[in-house]
Design a protein around this nucleic acid. Structure first.
Length: 733
RNA sequence: GGAUCCGUAGCUCAGCGGUAGAGCGUUCGGUUCACAUCCGAAAGGUCAGAGGUUCGAUACCUCUCGGAUCCACCA
């Protein structure tokens, strides 16, 4: 044996030993133990967060060693919005945009793009020593996933869990899609607050309203005051004039108005403000669009039509100033606003037709399962996080206006005489058009050409909207149809992940799976949805326990992010110090649910530990001759007792997901008890102690194997040439 | 604004009623005999602050201050 352990020379060789031996497939044996891997983005390369899957690998290896039929199922996610965003950046570099392509072409291009990059992350996983059953991998755009998603959607529709509605959503005009509340990032910013005067009808008087958004004023039809506001409730029922259009506006009363804020009077812009939208629905007020999907003022905006929001704001303010209708401007108004988590731009609240899942009934089951501990959360605090989320969880908008995803299986019936479908398409000369479908049909453009170059379909909701059919294929009843162009929110498919990756037999034997280990960030986005779908479709939770870890941080405890430049590339760490060292660093000293602190110093420390173990093995290997004695020496008895305690502690800790305790215990035992104390003492009675030395080393290797699989397997192979691999044996007392 | 978690050695964290612990870092001393990716030793803390419960509080309770995360909302 060399003086030093050299991971680079060992890891590849050991990994293929496991792979060739078929150790990653579940053995037929006995009790099943199952973990499903949270599918990483197929397009991604490994970052520090993924390295935390080490925890799953530790569990799988531990259970495999204990003799379970351990199965770890991997997969990759299409990550709809994420991936399309990356692809569009790539297009932009080439001077192109998604608008240059019809949906089919764009989808295929992204598919090829992803295909080219996919597989990389699994290769990187093997560098970490992950023992997943790779040949079982599922990609979320595979046919069987799409079929499952269609089936679920149909069932939900039939059972009344799906609704279609005009709904105000946060829409990113740059990314071209609506975002769920969970994807919205609120930031604080100083913006001018304009105090706008509304002339009172028939008087020389004004009512002043404070707003940061004067640009959609031309569609406003109402102001509101709080009916309990004694100073102002006399205004209810009065009429003022729209400062831009001079149209008459009514003042209504609604309790949502805060009498203390601004002037205590608000303008209502239902189409572009979530609160105003609620008020408008309640009072049955008109919801008129002022801003289109491109973030520009609509053509009804007269002189402002076509302007972007910011330009329109400047123009409107200028005009109002000229009319003397700006009372004052507060330049230091600090407020929070919604921005896109992806591109950081301001989001535009827009009303667009959306498909929703009605969660009211569904979430009750999740609540009950959580309260009844059908799913156990580790650490425990996440149980209350989940419950508080369920309290406020509201209907889930599942429509995403992107191509890269599973299309919502809806076909709209085209009535050539109705004006209820708006389309955006590229004609056969690659020229884009957007307008009412009827207009194009009247011009004699064939529906086939429109469908061929289709970018977006925007069908009215409600009774005036078109009829539609739920089907994954185009209906063949001879009528004209156009497909829904929206795709499902990624979490709609990944939320059904456990039901997709397990086959029929396994649904009996391995469902619910044993544990789901994932980042606590996606507790609400993903974990809650998986539980919801599991209970809805199978009447049972999809996993018995959830282990959640928090973000991976640098040595100063700061979250790793590209913009901070403190990202640690796990692969570089492996190249430098070995996979075992990296793996150990991710669990040693990390409290459950806590921040994972990863630093060069720490990984180096763990590399040193691997080397220490290596040298313990070298020491043991130097002497082969054993002297049998009648009774054990007191030092032998001591170390064997310590070993037993260690086996017990490590086993118990692993069962309880206390990875830090388990790893610290085995580290302490090997280095500071076995090496520092026992080995030093045996130097004077070497041959006598040889048998105990060998035994303690073997057992230590097993205990450490889930954490540091490569070095332990390598040493095991050197010492126990005739025995099977260490990967299948756990020590017992 | 609401919720949760956390303030213990320079750093990262254990301890959670009975005179303060680990790793890393620092300082000092060690080159034969497994390992300098090592061994031995030392320095370093009114356990954030103030009250309370208790024979006794770093630990339990209350408040204050400081930090983190999540959620809601802001015309």
């Amino acid at each position: 044996m060399d003086k030093h352990y050299k991971p680079a020379e060992v890891e590849g060789k050991i990994y293929s030993l496991w792979e060739k031996g078929g150790y990653f497939s579940a053995p037929n044996a006995k009790k099943p133990y199952t973990i499903i891997m949270p599918p990483p983005n197929a397009n991604a390369s490994l970052h520090a967060g993924h390295a935390m899957y080490t925890i799953d690998d530790i569990l799988i290896r531990f259970k495999r060693m204990q003799g379970f039929s351990a199965l770890w199922i991997p997969g990759t996610d299409h990550a709809g919005f994420e991936t399309q965003f990356v692809y569009e950046k790539y297009l932009k570099k080439q001077g192109k945009s998604r608008m240059d392509f019809d949906r089919k072409t764009l989808y295929q291009d992204i598919y090829d793009f992803v295909k080219e990059n996919s597989g990389l992350i699994f290769k990187q996983f093997t560098r970490l020593g992950f023992s997943a059953d790779w040949k079982r991998s599922v990609f979320t755009l595979e046919d069987k996933v799409i079929q499952q998603v269609f089936k679920t959607f149909k069932k939900m529709y039939d059972e009344g869990y799906i609704k279609r509605d005009e709904y105000i959503v946060n829409y990113c005009t740059y990314c071209g899609t609506s975002l769920a509340d969970l994807e919205v990032v609120h930031i604080e910013r100083t913006d001018p607050l304009f105090y706008v005067r509304y002339p009172v009808k028939g008087k020389k008087d004004f009512i002043t309203v404070a707003t940061v958004r004067p640009e959609p004023i031309f569609v406003d039809t109402h102001l509101a005051v709080n009916p309990k506001d004694k100073k102002r409730n006399h205004l209810i029922g009065q009429t003022v004039l729209n400062p831009l259009t001079d149209a008459e506006m009514q003042i209504i009363g609604d309790e949502y108005v805060d009498p203390e804020f601004g002037t205590g009077i608000v303008k209502l812009t239902p189409a572009h403000d979530p609160n105003d939208f609620k008020v408008a629905k309640k009072h049955n007020l008109p919801i008129t669009t002022a801003i289109d999907w491109n973030g520009r003022i609509v053509k009804e905006g007269g002189k402002y039509a076509g302007l972007k929001v910011k330009q329109a704001r400047e123009a409107v303010v200028l005009d109002l100033k000229e009319k003397g209708l700006i009372e004052k401007i507060d330049e230091n108004y600090l407020h929070s606003l919604a921005t896109c988590y992806k591109c950081g731009r301001d989001l535009e609240p827009l009303t667009i037709p959306n498909w929703f899942i009605k969660v009211e009934k569904l979430k009750e089951k999740v609540k009950k399962a959580t309260t009844d501990n059908k799913v156990k959360f580790i650490p425990h605090k996440f149980k209350s996080h989940m419950l508080s989320w369920l309290e406020i969880m509201h209907d889930w908008p599942i429509s995403r206006q992107i191509v890269w995803g599973i299309r919502i299986p809806i076909w709209y019936e085209v009535d050539p005489k109705a004006s209820n479908i708006w389309v955006w398409f590229i004609d056969k000369d690659k020229k884009p058009h957007q307008d009412n479908l009827r207009k194009f049909l009247d011009q004699g453009i064939k529906i086939e050409e429109i469908e061929q170059g289709l970018q977006k379909v925007h069908a009215l909701t409600g009774p005036s909207g078109p009829k539609y059919v739920i089907s994954d294929k185009k209906p063949t009843d001879g009528k004209m149809y156009l497909p829904e162009t929206d795709t499902f929110d990624t979490w709609f498919s990944s939320g059904q992940w456990p039901l997709i990756v397990l086959n029929k037999d396994e649904m009996k034997s391995r469902y619910p799976t044993d544990v789901m280990g994932t980042l606590s960030d996606i507790l609400k986005l993903w974990v809650s949805r998986m539980i919801m779908f599991g209970l809805y479709l199978e009447s049972e939770v999809p996993f018995k326990e959830v282990f959640l870890w928090s973000m991976v941080a640098d040595k100063f405890g700061k979250k790793m992010s590209k913009s901070k430049g403190n990202v640690v590339n796990p692969i570089e760490m492996i190249d430098k110090y070995g996979a075992d060292a990296l793996r150990m660093s991710l669990v040693y000293g990390i409290p459950a649910g806590g921040k994972v602190i990863l630093s060069d110093d720490k990984v180096r420390g763990m590399r040193n530990f691997a080397n220490k173990l290596w040298n313990v093995a070298r020491f043991v290997e130097m002497e082969k001759e054993k002297v049998k004695t009648e009774s054990l020496h007191k030092d032998d008895k001591w170390i064997l007792a310590e070993l037993n305690t260690t086996i017990k502690t490590v086993t118990d800790s692993l069962e309880k997901y206390k990875f830090n305790e388990a790893s610290e215990t085995i580290y302490e035992f090997i280095w500071h008890k076995f090496a520092d104390i026992y080995i030093e003492k045996t130097k004077s009675r070497r041959k006598e102690a040889q048998q105990t030395l060998e035994h303690v080393l073997d057992e230590s290797l097993k205990l450490l194997h889930p954490f540091m699989p490569f070095v332990t397997e390598e040493i095991w192979g050197k010492l126990n040439k005739d025995k099977p691999l260490i990967i299948t044996s756990w020590p017992t007392i």
